[in-house]
Design a protein around this nucleic acid. Structure first.
Length: 972
DNA sequence: ATAACTCCGTA
DNA sequence: GTACGGAGTTATT
């Protein structure tokens, strides 16, 4: 063991008792063997081994051991016969689990350590000392206070059930003394369960206070006479001997002679087949599935091992230790060289493409017994496809039409609940017969949907999540194939279910259009005959499940599991909650604004017609172009790609600057009509009939960079730049007694650029809180920051933005309205002053050319297949996008992390009523009761500013500005 | 009815 | 120069 290594020591015995009491009882299905604690233990080990990085530990171990008590007799009984004497025998259903847990440890291929005469705690103390001497760090997996004395600079504890780290600060917080005084504290308080006498009447608070005052136990006992409180002084004096004995009992021995040295605790890759063999024998289906996925083992090829059970009649009968009877899996060293998951992924893809999708076995479920059987089948499989058909694409408005569950390839069931008579049957509008009541179906499915041990696989499950939450059901344990595809293939190909089925299953699914028709003649899914509905909905659930089998191994093979699990999947509940909360708008104000805008636009229209010599459709660029550049003979500028004269704002502005009247009026008219049609007229139409609020929908998978997008309505493009536009923002308001809080990252993309390109001047400027554009201008033009002309700073600002967008001389020239040569000179100058930026751009382009994608600082990928295009213009487009994506995408990842943590952080801060409502790329908008606002703002800022941690320690600080007001305009 | 195009609102 | 979504017009189906 060496410096940088990290040893995990699991307190196995401690865990057994804790898990037994904390976790719900669980028995092996086939024979009723109690296995709750074993299951908890296995899940915990797997989590620590596979993704300790994703727990509060945040570290991947290099060494690992599980430590057990050998027996209840130890050297402490010689010191004090009554030690642990009043321990009662463990409960009957816990007894068989002791042996099973040791077997589990061996199945995990981990050292299982115990020693006669010593407690597990002594062994842990000894390994801690050895690791410390070797320069390594240690994490003790336990929350037992008896072990807290070991905590120090290189030793921490971790509570796996609460996902909480315990370091020096946490010990002090909990007990009021630092770890090295824990022994003295426990000597004073004693422990009734272990029969450690201590001093009667002294609890942790008093003990901490005494130790604070006297320093340590010996000093306290020597100077006990000085204690003012009579009773306390007397009991301490009378129990001094007990305190000293107690100290010996609680003090851990760190000199236990060990058979296994640190080197034998070195962690090696999981033995997939061996572990699966054990898990199969224990019938831990869902963990087995996860292990199989991750290690690239075909679980069906591994036979269940045998487990020995003491003190319990097992149907599996007695046998030796766990051992796979057949190592039928692909390899014994899965995941070791990275080839196996890739192989598995490829094999799965081939199998999926080869297997024809057969819908003939789909069933329609219309009675309680069949539904019950279906639920039982789902539990047995452990993973099901899920698709809910709704009456609207908007889950805030939709009712349930039917629910499809896929239980295996070609196996799906559809439970119709909301089908109505067919459209052709105009006379009856009643419900189709053969359907259960929605409420009964939901009640029957609720346990399954909320059960963490059964994985629900669907496509774009945010809608399902939101709909179910409206019915009081929390969807737990789900995977979303759309998000998996997005993580794997953002930038190359669509992520719709149809597209994925086409790509991976070589199956062309029925499109909505084919199924329901469209437009006037189209019907709703609820008008479909049950037979066709079953085929269509079953197919969706079936496809989702099959796609999962293809995409999950690909995630593993490409090392993208963490992105998916940290940055994508948890956003489903987070966004669903935001969408369902919605935001309040002032409809009166919008209607008043509409009137004003109409009046102003109308006045302009008259002027425009006069100047043009007659009425025409101002909104038609074609007609407008004809009039401006034909009839009126103004000098035309740019052309559009179809050869028309461009009438863009930029062209019109230039004409206006030359003294022409009409173009200015057109620009103004366009602005007014844009605001009216897109915002003041459209927004009220989105107010929900019941909540009276506007509920946007966020799309998680529609950008190439990782940003979200917002639709129906798009609340990410509400005006702000012009005074006229800002009025629209003031119509976004808080409820009475509440305020809106807007918190936005300041210059997050430039900060990320400074970090990834490692630019000393920019990093220093951000660290000092300087004006970044002024610093840039100063570097480039040699002008001092003090008294810098506005014009100089704003040029530098445009260049900074340009850099983030993958600058070109052409683009910068356009932006600044300067000749291209001048823009080119600026860029050259910029690269001279900041050579790191050019390096970043060159290496990013080269990386993208080599791999076909670029990565954010967290490892999210964005693909640019055109990066190798022979057409220079297409290639250059991809290059700029590739330069921008890591920056824009990293910023998107950071705010995603903040959003994932936000609700919990607010609850933990005692602010459960503060609601996150909107995200606008670098801004989050909340609604809070007025009395909560002051407390909420620092919590929000802290979560946002620390969102990159602990995964990435940015070399530049993040800064968040937060403001509260009654409306969005004033809050921003 | 749908698609393409142009324009413009945001970060 | 990056990333989006939506409205309106026009041409096509």
């Amino acid at each position: 063991m060496k410096k940088g290594d990290h040893l995990f020591l699991v307190d196995g015995s401690g865990y057994i008792f804790r898990a037994y009491h904390a976790l719900p009882p669980l028995t092996r299905k086939s024979d009723g063997l109690p296995v709750g604690a074993v299951s908890g233990f296995c899940n915990m080990l797997w989590k620590l081994l596979r993704d300790a990085r994703n727990t509060d530990v945040g570290i991947v171990p290099t060494h690992f051991a599980v430590i057990f008590d050998y027996s209840s007799k130890t050297f402490r009984n010689e010191l004090f016969t009554e030690y642990k004497a009043n321990r009662t025998a463990p409960p009957d259903d816990l007894i068989p689990q002791f042996g099973l847990i040791r077997q589990a440890t061996r199945a995990f291929d981990l050292p299982c350590i115990e020693k006669e005469g010593f407690e597990a705690d002594d062994l842990i103390a000894t390994y801690c000392r050895l690791a410390c001497e070797a320069g390594g760090d240690t994490t003790i997996i336990s929350s037992d206070k008896d072990l807290m004395q070991l905590v120090g600079p290189s030793v921490q504890m971790y509570d796996p059930m609460k996902d909480k780290q315990i370091g020096i600060a946490e010990v002090i917080e909990k007990w009021g003394v630092p770890p090295e005084k824990m022994i003295d504290l426990q000597a004073l308080t004693g422990d009734s369960i272990d029969n450690v006498p201590g001093v009667p009447g002294i609890g942790p608070k008093t003990a901490a206070q005494l130790l604070e005052e006297f320093g340590d136990l010996d000093t306290l006992l020597a100077r006990a006479g000085e204690i003012k409180q009579n009773k306390r002084r007397e009991t301490i004096l009378a129990n001094a001997a007990n305190a000293r004995i107690s100290r010996e009992l609680v003090k851990l021995r760190n000199d236990v002679p060990l058979e296994e040295g640190l080197e034998s605790l070195q962690l090696h890759p999981a033995n997939g087949p061996r572990l699966i063999s054990y898990l199969k024998a224990m019938e831990f289906t869902s963990l087995m599935r996860r292990v199989a996925e991750t290690t690239g083992t075909d679980a069906s090829a591994v036979e269940a091992g045998t487990v020995t059970v003491d003190g319990f009649e097992s149907a599996h009968g007695p046998d030796l230790d766990v051992a796979p009877k057949a190592a039928g899996a692909t390899t014994d060293t899965p995941a070791q060289d990275g080839k196996t998951p890739a192989l598995l992924a490829r094999r799965r893809a081939e199998a999926a493409a080869a297997q024809k999708l057969d819908t003939s076995a789909y069933r329609t479920v219309s009675e309680a017994q069949a539904l019950e059987d279906l639920v039982a089948e789902a539990y047995a499989t452990g993973v099901v496809g899920l698709d809910i058909q709704m009456t609207s694409i908007d889950p805030m408005l939709a009712e349930i039409t039917g629910i499809a569950l896929g239980t295996g390839a070609g196996q799906a069931s559809y439970i119709p609940v909301g089908h109505k008579a067919q459209a052709s049957d105009l006379l009856s509008d009643g419900a189709t017969p053969g359907q259960m009541r929605a409420a009964d179906v939901l009640a029957a499915l609720q346990p399954l949907l909320s059960d963490r041990s059964v994985l629900k696989v669907g496509h774009n499950l945010k809608n399902e999540w939101l709909l179910l939450s409206r019915h009081g059901i929390t969807l737990e344990a789900f995977d979303d194939v759309m998000l998996m595809s997005y993580v794997l293939d953002a930038g190359s190909g669509a992520h719709t279910l149809d597209a994925l089925a086409d790509r991976w299953l070589k199956h062309s699914a029925l499109t909505i259009k084919e199924l329901l028709g469209s437009g006037r003649t189209g019907i709703g899914f609820d008008r479909l005959p049950l037979e066709r509905a079953t085929a269509a909905a079953g197919e969706q659930a079936d496809m989702a499940l099959r796609l999962w089998a293809v995409l999950k191994p690909r995630l593993v093979a490409q090392g993208l599991v963490s992105i998916y699990e940290r940055l994508e999947r948890p956003l489903i509940p987070a966004l669903a909650r935001m969408e369902s909360r919605g935001i309040s708008i002032d409809r009166q104000m919008l209607s008043r604004l509409s009137g004003e805008l109409a009046q102003k636009a109308g006045a302009l229209e008259d002027d425009i017609y006069k100047a043009a010599g007659g009425p025409f459709t101002i909104g038609s660029p074609k007609q407008l172009g004809d009039i401006l550049f034909g009839t009126l003979g103004l000098p035309g500028g740019a052309k559009t790609k179809t050869g028309q004269w461009s009438t863009s704002a930029q062209v019109l502005e230039e004409l206006a600057a030359e003294g022409h009247d009409l173009p200015r009026k057109i620009v103004d008219w366009r602005q007014l009509t844009k605001l009216k049609s897109t915002y003041t007229d459209a927004l009220p139409g989105y107010v929900h009939p019941e909540t009276r609020r506007v509920h946007t929908s966020y799309s998680l998978a529609s950008t190439s960079t990782g940003r979200l997008s917002s639709t129906e309505p798009n609340l990410q493009n509400i005006p702000i730049r012009t005074a006229e536009g800002r009025k629209i923002r003031t119509a976004f308001v808080a409820e009475d007694g509440n305020k809106l809080i807007s918190a936005d990252y300041s210059q997050i993309e430039l900060r990320i650029l400074a970090h990834v390109a490692d630019i000393p001047q920019l990093k220093a400027a951000f660290a000092n809180g300087d004006d970044i554009h002024a610093i840039t201008a100063s570097e480039m033009f040699g002008v001092p920051v003090e008294g810098m002309p506005r014009e100089v700073r704003s040029r530098a600002k445009a260049i900074n933005f340009g850099i983030v967008y993958g600058i070109s001389a052409f683009g910068l020239a356009n932006q600044l309205s300067i000749p291209r040569e001048e823009a080119g000179a600026y860029i050259k100058r910029y690269f001279e002053r900041f050579p790191g930026i050019r390096d970043y751009m060159d290496t990013t382009k080269a990386f993208c050319r080599e791999h076909g994608y670029v990565e954010t600082i967290f490892g999210r990928r964005a693909h640019y297949p055109d990066i190798r295009a022979s057409n220079p213009s297409i290639r250059a487009n991809s290059e700029r996008a590739a330069i921008n994506a890591p920056i824009q995408g990293s910023a998107a990842d950071i705010i995603r992390r903040a959003m994932v943590r936000m609700d919990d952080a607010l609850v933990a801060a005692g602010l459960p009523d503060v609601r996150m409502l909107l995200q606008v790329h670098d801004e989050l908008i909340f609604e809070a009761r007025e009395e909560d606002v002051e407390a909420a703002m620092p919590v929000i800022r802290t979560v946002m500013e620390n969102a990159a941690m602990p995964a990435i320690a940015l070399s530049v600080p993040l800064q968040v500005d937060a403001r509260a007001a009654h409306n969005w305009d004033e809050a921003h």
